[in-house]
Design a protein around this nucleic acid. Sequence first.
DNA 1: AGAATTAATTTGTAAATCAAATTAAATATC
DNA 2: GATATTTAATTTGATTTACAAATTAATTCT
Lengths: 403, 403
Amino acid sequence: MQHHPQGARKSHSRRLLLTEIRRTGPVARIDLASRTGISRASVTTITADLLHEGLIEEVARKDPTPEQTRGRPRVDLKLRGAAHLVAGLKIANRAVSVALVDFEGALLGQREAPLPRPVNDARNLAEQLGQILDQALDGIGRTRGDLSAIGIGISGIVDAHRGFVYWSPSLVSRNLPFGQILTETLGKPVYLDNDTNLVALAEQSFGLGRGIDDFIVVTIESGVGMGIVLNGHLYRGTRGCGAEFGHTKVHLDGALCRCGQRGCLEAYVADYALLREAAISEPDQHPRPDEQRIEALLRAARNGQPTASSIVARAGRMFSMGLANLVNIFDPQLIILSGERMQLDHLYASEVIAAMRSSIVQIDKPPPEVMIHKWGDLMWAKGAAAFALGGVIETAIANGKPT
Amino acid sequence: MQHHPQGARKSHSRRLLLTEIRRTGPVARIDLASRTGISRASVTTITADLLHEGLIEEVARKDPTPEQTRGRPRVDLKLRGAAHLVAGLKIANRAVSVALVDFEGALLGQREAPLPRPVNDARNLAEQLGQILDQALDGIGRTRGDLSAIGIGISGIVDAHRGFVYWSPSLVSRNLPFGQILTETLGKPVYLDNDTNLVALAEQSFGLGRGIDDFIVVTIESGVGMGIVLNGHLYRGTRGCGAEFGHTKVHLDGALCRCGQRGCLEAYVADYALLREAAISEPDQHPRPDEQRIEALLRAARNGQPTASSIVARAGRMFSMGLANLVNIFDPQLIILSGERMQLDHLYASEVIAAMRSSIVQIDKPPPEVMIHKWGDLMWAKGAAAFALGGVIETAIANGKPT
DNA sequence: AGAATTAATTTGTAAATCAAATTAAATATC
DNA sequence: GATATTTAATTTGATTTACAAATTAATTCT
């Protein structure tokens, strides 16, 4: 109820139809009418506009519905991929992933390139991103000029609305208008957000969250993150530091966390948390890389070695407790556990889910479903692309000008 | 995006204006236009309708704005109280409170009556409520026929959308369509919800949450409850058992809770939690009422008695931890601590708030404000009335028929 | 080939909304 | 005290938006 661009009401039906087409994939006009409540006449005229502007296109109906065998066949509509090209970038610790995605959400190209240094000056990082982006574009024979927008995910604390970064492990300085810097440097509109929020967007656009209005995505990497989708929209909090699942407290004056506080969930389930416990009983003195140590620990736990089992079991129980708290607070339809690291199976284990189920308020209705979605770094980048796509669609709705 | 009554779009501007008038109190047409983005012409025609239907009325401008000293003076509009009468009922353990509220939200009458038994059969309880309601109406010379709707708050687990009660301490049976039963018995549309949700609505409509889009209300009674307002709307979860703050876990395998599980926040801060710890060192054998025992405990703690201090201090620290978790998850603008029991000062103490502040993710922006709002049982009933009012406004927007 | 069926479009109409012009109600100025 | 000035609210006329009903299109069934 704040500022109102003149065309806000005008485009109401347009928005409804475009988002419905986006959500439902190929869909016939008559179904659009019944689902949105807009009359068939209006659906015809508005979709005609969208077709003319090149935002959508007609496709032959794939599934000739069993019941609908007679009469004029339906013609499906879907987003027209070629209408726009967007890029999604994920800034990781020592690498950057790029996903090039068309208006339909199809992956046209990708690239992963190393970041020489994990922490960078803002302007410098922006320029490196530009180079990697151009290489990715090169790979599919396109240029930066072809892009409609760029979405970027970065870890840390970000106010996505303003593109403001309070703090990020990837940047030397705090409190930067990094979104603005990126827009200037890259020459295209940049949508910047915290990376875990973008995973939630990716699940909503391309993944297990499609068509679900209230769900939570928990990401398990070296830390523990969360994205919250309520009423079909990503909830970001008011300052940009919500959804900090990893730093919710699960023990009063508990284990020391990287953030300096005590009792954070992360301080019980993250790699470093497991390793510092394991260190006590580790036989060998010569240092091994953390990856190997974690793997050895988990292997020992699976083999029933008591100390290792105890360490891993506690992590799992703390994690269940954290999940149960989310359910007790949000009562979502679905929880998606998302991570790319296969070795973290102990957190995805059925005992962990079962423990969560027994720690929530019990009612005579099934508890929220829990789904596990393992995917690679690329999907973070696709999430960033989904964010950019959202922005592009907004402007497409507002403008109503041909492409 | 589910079902679409034919008049959904028609009433778009109507809704916008009516809700803006409700939110802003007396407001001039020209301000309505600038705030909603609707043209002055349309504001005139739509408000003329609303005036004609008796939903709003003109009032002389109270504050002759310093700057606006020349020209035709503005005429303020506000909701017309007489347009509708609603009742709000709060079902407590051994009592029922009734608030009679007009369309503007003004309290016209109230009543509190004892409930002979705390747990009742649904139909029986509905009839008792009807009697108490009629007595309250009698007190202001009105009858049940004058009511437009009734809002009712009950503790337990409620799916407000369907008016379905999974479980309530006030009812003998589980899984009842209690809302339906009430509508039938009372002969007026009943809006039924969990009582803590209604406190949040009360804060939003009449209290500290006015004009705030994202806030959380934590209620401290014998248990600990929560209401969540996000994007200006009460968030209820998908099954009706969200916002169970009292049963979020703050300790793995911790203290035993009334709900049968372990480690619930409630099991550390509720009356019974304090008393069972105090019992160990209580000198006297002859049983005293719980109220007195709690008071004695808190007095002893204030006087520095070590055991009592330790008990009360731990409750406070656990509570801070729970609050910090809410902030880390929601990042709200405001947290309202709401309760009527003055003796619970230890939970409102500045050390508790400070401990919460130091347990949240730190960024270079001030943490959410914490406000303390002590109020009586009547405000629960007013919250129920606010819920009913919301329903009445919805139908008023949809119908567009004179009163 | 014609009837039946269902989807999509066209046509004419009702409504919602707006920009611009006009009127209303006050103060300021001479 | 009459007139100019200022600002709010309304009226007017036009435009846009959306719809119901009628029509056309593209099928299958008989």
